[in-house]
């Protein structure tokens, strides 16, 4: 790891001020992603700003009946929170198997949402791909078994690594962001960005001196939610594909729904075809199967990951069955 100067920021204002710096300054939260990247020389900041003590680490109810989660809240505290799980069960389902206990004890909500891609070319210093300012993507003709099956227009073919991002998009969350120009709110669905040649160095809309401070969750209303992950290993790894569904119900009929897939695209992937297939239908096994089929109709796998299409199909179907209260394995 390259040596760096360190700032222990204790307020939002101080954190932003410390990030505004002529060299490279990066925020440090739980460090479970950033420190590994620095050890591998993927990032070599001259300044590291500890934001754990600067950003809110609590969750609080909002006047509109929703919840507001601070970026410094640790994943374990989210898991152990008395109310969030009751109102937003998919968030807890997504948080339960993140990494390992030790990782959940340190990692924060803000760090989880802003963690960088796990693409092995990205994580290897020797491969200077688009994401590191190079002019090619090594995954295209390389080892791409864990890469994207949706949104594969390039230039990068990563899958977004955040487990929490998917239920946050599905619940229609908004992120509060602060920076030297003030604060703004961004819908979770618009926070994460599809890669283009202009923005491929990042995965979201944050400027260098901006920080995510809060996740604002609207009151869920009369919804049924489901979450299903397919993992190769029970711990120590990311899911191969997973899905959160949040369905607004009218009696037994799905009025409208959000179907969001994770680990399959450069952003949490909201599936319009699946949502259309659900609208106006009774919540049952046939509907789930049809929606799953619709979801994967858009898939464009790479040379080595067609197997993920079936996994994504299963994740969508079982997340919907889960919402319907039908037991799956």
């Amino acid at each position: 790891m390259k040596a760096f100067a360190y700032v222990n920021a204790t307020s939002e204002k101080d954190a932003v001020a410390a990030l505004k710096f002529d060299g490279i300054a990066l925020p440090l939260a739980g460090g479970q992603d950033l420190l590994a990247r620095m050890k591998d020389y993927i990032d070599t900041p001259e300044r590291v700003v500890n934001v754990k003590n600067a950003l809110d680490r609590t969750a609080a109810p909002t006047s509109g009946g929703g919840w507001r989660i601070g970026a410094s809240m640790k994943i374990v505290d989210l898991l152990e929170h008395a109310d969030i799980g009751k109102m937003y069960p998919a968030i807890i389902a997504a948080a339960t198997d993140i990494g390992t206990p030790q990782i959940r004890h340190q990692a924060t909500v803000g760090g989880n949402l802003n963690q960088r891609p796990r693409c092995w070319y990205f994580r290897n210093e020797e491969f200077v791909c688009y994401k590191k300012g190079g002019s090619r993507c090594f995954a295209v003709n390389g080892e791409n078994q864990y890469h994207a099956i949706f949104g594969n227009d390039g230039p990068s073919h990563i899958v977004h690594p955040s487990s929490l991002a998917v239920p946050f998009v599905a619940y229609g969350a908004t992120f509060r962001v602060i920076g030297s120009k003030g604060e703004r709110e961004v819908a979770a669905a618009e926070y994460f960005t599809m890669p283009t040649l202009q923005n491929v160095l990042k995965e979201n809309v944050l400027d260098d001196d901006e920080l995510l401070t809060h996740v604002m969750l609207p009151a869920p209303g009369n919804v049924k939610t489901g979450h299903y992950e397919v993992r190769y290993k029970a711990s120590h790894d990311w899911p191969l594909a997973f899905t959160t569904v949040v369905l607004a119900m009218n009696g037994g009929i799905v009025q409208s729904g959000r179907v969001v897939l994770g680990a399959v695209a450069p952003v949490p992937w909201r599936s319009k075809p699946a949502e259309d297939a659900l609208a106006g239908k009774p919540l049952n096994e046939a509907t789930a199967a049809a929606a799953a089929e619709a979801a994967v109709s858009e898939a464009k796998p790479m040379s080595g990951n067609a197997y993920k299409v079936q996994i994504a199909r299963t994740a969508v179907k079982r997340a919907i069955l889960n919402a319907a209260g039908i037991k799956t394995v």
Binding site: Y6, D14, A17, F21
Partner: peptide, 25 residues
């Protein structure tokens, strides 16, 4: 580079009296 940063960091810390910069040493 690191040496340069220390000097810059120290000067800046004094100027702003904002958050204290320590290291890289």
């Amino acid at each position: 580079l690191a040496t340069a940063v220390t000097a810059a960091g120290a000067a800046e810390a004094e100027a702003q009296a904002g958050p204290r910069v320590v290291g890289p040493g």
